[in-house]
Computed example of a mutant assay.
Amino acid sequence: MTEAQTVPAGLDAEKVGRWIDQKFGVSEVSYSVLSVGRSNLTYTVDVGGEPRWVLRRPPLGHQGGSAHNVAREGRIMAALGSTQVPVPNVLEIVDDPAVMEVPFVFMDHCPGFPLNTPEEWALIPAENRRATAFGMVDTLAAIHRVDIDAAGLGDLRRPGNLVERQLRRWLGQFENITQRDIPVIREVHDVLVERMPKADDVVTGIAHGDFKPNNMIFAPDGTINAVVDWELTAIGDVFTDLGYFVAMFETPQQYTNIWVPGQDDGFPATQELIAHYEEQTGTRAQNVNYYAAFALWKLACIREGVYTRMINGQMGDLAFNAEETGEGVEGLARQALTMLDSDLHS
């Protein structure tokens, strides 16, 4: 790259460029921040002004922990490459301090666009939009149908219940990172513990952990080219994904800061999405309101981490509104309480 080009924070252009030249024989590249994801940092690597590769690394100031373990995330995507789940093509998982001080994943650039705005949704022909919505559910079902051991991911299993572990984990992470007093986080946690579904109602599989429209890359016709952001993936109750997915469509955007299409935009009703999931998986989705509430509470904890990194200057060049992010934390927690008493699915 030339001296005039600006390198985003978190990259050493000389070291990374030398590695790319050695591995792929390309000496002239440029870098830009990819506007997908608010935790692990993601960059495009352009060649001749066109995106060729994507590089993904932990946040600036990362001190460890599986939530930002990009090597683990890269391994999951690589393992799913041979399944029916659409994922980016992982080229290398690099853990070499001579190239970068933290591990990173290097993958082919996946063409297409996520759904972050009404304008992006409008890129999909109106007559294809219902099929696109159901295609998202088909993709979720494909994730949940993966044979964990055949994919080589059996060692990701952990003892005990996924929801129970995550309630404990995210509360601990929230309390470790927050610099504010937000009592409703503990209040929702305690209700979720009290109302946890019975073991007989749990269906175990790969749970993506952050399955929503802006974590998918769409082709112009509305088909899904790839699911991205696998950093929160775990083996456990797959209804956590379903609850999270439908919660995005049941929660006001002011709480999530995530735009999703609604029925006025040609999107099916929540009940239709759940029914389609049941048809594709052959299971009956139970306790969907609980899982939706759990998803919103977890999102509140995650957003507090993002907010803290923002105000501490650890999010690189990503231009997000810290005040809006901070305000959404309590709103999400209170929406979770509302969701617990809702009737998403009979």
Score class of each variant (00 low, 15 high):
30 S>M: 07
260 V>W: 04
210 D>Q: 08
85 V>F: 04
330 E>V: 14
183 P>R: 00
333 A>V: 10
113 F>K: 00
36 V>A: 13
261 P>H: 04
243 G>P: 09
272 E>C: 02
155 D>W: 09
178 T>R: 14
282 G>S: 13
74 G>R: 07
173 Q>V: 13
198 K>G: 15
215 N>D: 06
125 P>N: 04
166 Q>I: 07
113 F>N: 02
232 L>R: 10
47 V>W: 08
107 M>D: 03
335 Q>E: 13
170 W>D: 03
201 D>W: 10
5 Q>A: 14
172 G>T: 09
64 G>H: 01
285 A>R: 12
27 S>D: 14
176 N>E: 13
153 L>D: 11
134 F>N: 04
14 E>S: 03
36 V>L: 06
261 P>W: 01
337 L>W: 10
216 M>K: 04
332 L>P: 06
292 A>E: 10
330 E>M: 07
20 I>P: 08
119 E>R: 09
24 F>M: 02
276 H>C: 08
237 D>C: 15
315 M>H: 12
59 P>M: 03
255 Y>M: 05
46 D>Y: 00
340 L>S: 09
115 L>W: 02
283 T>H: 14
276 H>L: 09
72 R>D: 13
181 D>F: 07
222 G>D: 03
52 R>E: 12
113 F>W: 04
138 D>Y: 06
252 P>C: 00
250 E>F: 02
41 L>G: 00
69 N>S: 13
163 V>A: 14
281 T>H: 07
280 Q>M: 14
327 E>C: 00
43 Y>Q: 03
202 V>D: 09
95 D>Q: 13
308 T>K: 10
83 T>G: 12
340 L>N: 08
292 A>L: 10
326 G>E: 00
335 Q>D: 12
342 S>M: 10
14 E>H: 12
289 N>L: 04
187 E>Q: 11
167 L>D: 12
192 L>G: 11
162 L>A: 15
199 A>H: 13
312 N>K: 15
181 D>C: 02
209 G>Q: 02
236 G>A: 11
310 M>K: 02
291 Y>A: 01
92 E>Q: 15
74 G>P: 15
43 Y>W: 09
